[in-house]
């Protein structure tokens, strides 16, 4: 705006500007608190301990894998909700959002009851295939995906419902089957929604704590992600917890900002 000197839309109304700035401050001030309280003098040595990098790497790998899992299952689910013409769709949608409301720890217990060693499905996985999810990185991925998937489904479904279905009809008249239509027409047209959902999903998975520690447990290098490391550090050394949080924050901000720029910037 300042570059053009004059704005065609006039001045921003104060009724909007004031709460907007307050809102921004509300979100940013706690982060500033973290920055101020950070033990800057001992930061480098704390930062370059092997544990931090181990936890960070595990966090990034698991959150990314969980996001991939969510995309794989969540986009079709969103499509079913938006276009499937299912009876009782609003009820199904409500169930999809359950993990948003459920305390993550409860979600973790629920996952244990189903996928644990004695769980409804888990006991068969264990006896037939020798697969046991708890206490493994795969378990972390499952827990994170469970909690993060609603963010993706809701975003993608919203985008699908806003997209004009007549483009899909046009594709059909050109000889495209439903799968081809979905891949070549529907998906590109909702790409911004998918990207937004993916970003939310990834961010949620990265910060996941409750379901992860309950379902996958906590063991360094296998299931200790950054949030778990932060929590346990808080028990003994809050300074370390602050450092870990800052690392997590920095990495997620850098990743999200650069991805957004690349994906959405390229589409516009």
């Amino acid at each position: 705006m300042s570059r053009r000197g004059r704005s065609t839309s006039g001045r921003l109304p104060l009724v909007l500007l004031l709460p907007a700035l307050l809102g921004l401050a509300f979100l940013l001030v706690p982060l500033v608190g973290l920055l101020i309280k950070a033990p800057w003098s001992t930061l480098p040595e704390r930062l370059f301990s092997a544990d931090v990098w181990q936890a960070l790497r595990l966090s990034l790998v698991c959150a990314t894998a969980a996001t991939a899992l969510c995309l794989l299952l969540g986009v079709p689910l969103a499509w079913l909700l938006a276009r499937g013409g299912l009876p009782g769709r609003s009820v199904i949608r409500a169930f999809v959002t359950v993990p948003l409301v459920l305390p993550p720890v409860v979600g973790g217990v629920a996952l244990l009851l189903v996928l644990g060693r004695r769980g409804l499905v888990g006991q068969h996985l264990d006896t037939w295939f020798g697969i046991s999810l708890p206490f493994t990185p795969a378990g972390v991925v499952v827990a994170e995906a469970f909690v993060a998937m609603p963010f993706l489904v809701i975003s993608v479904e919203g985008a699908l419902r806003a997209a004009d279905p007549r483009y899909e009809e046009a594709a059909a008249t050109l000889g495209a089957g439903r799968w081809l239509t979905f891949r070549r027409v529907t998906l590109p047209s909702i790409a911004p929604g998918v990207v937004a959902g993916t970003v939310l999903c990834w961010a949620r998975a990265l910060g996941e704590f409750g379901a992860t520690i309950t379902f996958a447990g906590n063991f360094p290098g296998r299931t200790t992600t950054m949030p778990l490391a932060v929590y346990l550090a808080l028990e003994t050394d809050p300074d370390v917890a602050v450092v870990l949080s800052l690392v997590l924050l920095l990495v997620s901000v850098v990743v999200l900002a650069s991805l957004r720029e690349r994906w959405i910037g390229g589409l516009r």
Partner: peptide, 12 residues
């Protein structure tokens, strides 16, 4: 296999 965050979690 796991280092639980508190004793109740271990018990669970």
């Amino acid at each position: 296999d796991s280092l639980e965050q508190d004793v109740k979690a271990a018990l669970t």
